[in-house]
Design a protein around this nucleic acid. Structure first.
Lengths: 269, 269
DNA sequence: TTTCTATATTCATTGTCTTAGTATAGATAT
DNA sequence: ATATCTATACTAAGACAATGAATATAGAAA
């Protein structure tokens, strides 16, 4: 991914152009090729949800890789930037400042439950053409409620259902330090490496190495919280030196391991 | 299937016993074996939804075979009776008279959309333990809205009450692939073929062959949802090849099997 | 009218090959 | 514990072909 290769998108102005007093404005958009919406902010908060494809969202000096199992909440006025990889089917929910009191005040990644997904679909179908206190209005309120209740989890590991994929996923979970390549797992699972690759993308929304990376990050934090050293963690995850591990960690989570822990996890004692 | 073999269920009284002023009371129940809730009525309206398994609902001198893609709306005070075949996972939504103004005033079968299904699941999880104007309350209001907006299911399977008719209907249900003619069923049921024909028309509103067609369509969807192939379904319904089955299916429902499923039913798993 | 036999067409899945792009080991420095 | 650099092994993803499932169609038969 190369952030420098920006392509300017048509600015999204629906949320501002219309002077409607409705609190929630859903907006569906198709992105057809790798591109990047330049940094911008607006007075409405925004839930960014890619129902298919994958995106990277930048906000508050952090970035997240976001598959269709997750969405990003960007509070009102927060500057954000979104990078789309290839084709992405995008569903945005713009929420007026007056209606965000129950929502988080910083940028977070949430899990998208089946219910929330269906609600977003319906909201997108309705669009901004509804009256106050109509059934559509009530649905929009529930969309807000569901976002507010959604679980926060930036490292959520989506699983799959295909047997070959699950065989691989289980092998990876059982042995996080393994250096096996996609090819090795392919042989073990009974699918070609190309197929396994496709299965990862299709069912988890993440590529093979993105998935493995997330798994390692989860594991890393799990072990670090127990008080083990960065070196130990590197080993347990199968890295040959801590530099490599640290590099990976920082690239993904914005901060190197120890600093990240200090900031995000309860101080040890 | 034998309706006579009734077993009395513990009466469902949640809707009446509690004196809560909440408009919507969801209730999940597991039925573990073939049994029958005796005829009864209550001041709340009731949406009856079997998320898995099959049930027969009797109301207003009509009856329907209801699979998990459908639900039945019973308005307040309407006497109804439900027969459960084997294990059924039941989700009921009781709605107070004060909140049914947008809902149908007679007993109908509706399609359960993905959204409605997820809403019902969440409602069942919430139960009757919520406050007015809470997020949970708002969700319940949307449940009502969604029931009100739900499509009537043109595919519902009407049953009858005449013994000879029901003998035939049960034989058909038990053996969907049978090629038997109306005459064969007539002999078996003890009515002349002419009488049986009239009974079908009078009690189900459908001709013999229309009824059988509809039964096959319902069965088809039921099996397809389980993940079986179009070919398997064709066989199970007694067609000698999938083309014939597909042709019939598309002629009736506008779309070929797989496309219809994708559009109208939950993705498998 | 419906279903069957037969044939044709579309579509989704998978595997092979290829390319550009990416992650990590290993060395080195702070 | 962390950062940076380079060489190398690996991955991501497009193009293509092969397969088999799903679908369409048209004439014959029940």
């Amino acid at each position: 991914m190369n952030i420098e290769k920006k392509t300017k998108l048509n600015p999204i102005e629906v949320g501002f152009r219309k002077n409607k007093k409705i609190p929630v404005i859903p907006l569906a958009r198709q992105v057809f090729e790798t591109c990047c919406a330049n940094p911008h902010s607006h007075p409405r908060g925004q839930l960014i949800f890619a129902e298919s494809g994958i995106m990277r969202v930048f906000c508050e000096k952090r970035s997240w890789l976001v598959p269709p199992t997750q969405a990003v909440w960007v509070p009102p006025h927060y500057e954000h930037q979104v990078y789309f990889q290839n084709k992405v089917s995008l569903l945005n929910i713009f929420i007026d400042e007056s209606a965000v009191s129950t929502l988080p005040t910083s940028c977070i990644v949430i899990k998208v439950s089946k219910l929330l997904k269906e609600l977003i679909y319906k909201a997108a179908k309705i669009g901004d053409n509804y009256e106050l206190n109509s059934p559509e209005f009530r649905l929009m309120m529930v969309v807000i409620d569901e976002i507010a209740q959604a679980e926060k989890d930036e490292l959520f590991l989506p699983l799959g259902s295909d047997t070959r994929l699950m065989k691989t996923i289980n092998a990876l979970l059982d042995n996080p330090s393994s250096q096996k390549s996609l090819n090795d797992y392919a042989k073990h699972s009974g699918a070609s490496s190309r197929t396994l690759l496709r299965l990862f993308k299709k069912e988890t929304g993440l590529s093979f190495s993105d998935w493995r990376k997330r798994m390692k990050l989860q594991k890393a934090i799990e072990i670090l919280v127990q008080g083990k050293s960065v070196n130990e963690v590197s080993c347990e995850l199968g890295y040959h030196n801590s530099s490599s591990f640290i590099e990976m960690f920082r690239k993904e989570l914005g901060l190197p391991p120890v600093k990240y822990l200090a900031k995000n996890c309860e101080a040890k004692f």
